[in-house]
Amino acid sequence: MALKEQEEKYIQRYIDGDMDEHEKEEFRSYIKENPECAHRLQELKRTVTMVQGTSHVWAPETFTDSIMKELPKKRKRTAWKS
């Protein structure tokens, strides 16, 4: 069953940390009575945790050197002479 649009909005705001203490408390007691809404919140939290948990990748070791090779010849203040 689809959640109400308003519920979806509350869940998103809750996850984004956009609720003040009072709203948070209200929302928490609301989801206690609404398992479907609580379930959706759990799923979204889990999704976020999984995305955050993807391992970080690093630039290859040769990265900096290969950029430095591609840089234009150093600008010279006397360039007008040539």
Partner: peptide, 11 residues
């Protein structure tokens, strides 16, 4: 600067 930011940019 490249060394400082390469991993973030690459990621």
């Amino acid at each position: 600067l490249v060394d400082l930011y390469k991993d973030k940019v690459y990621q």
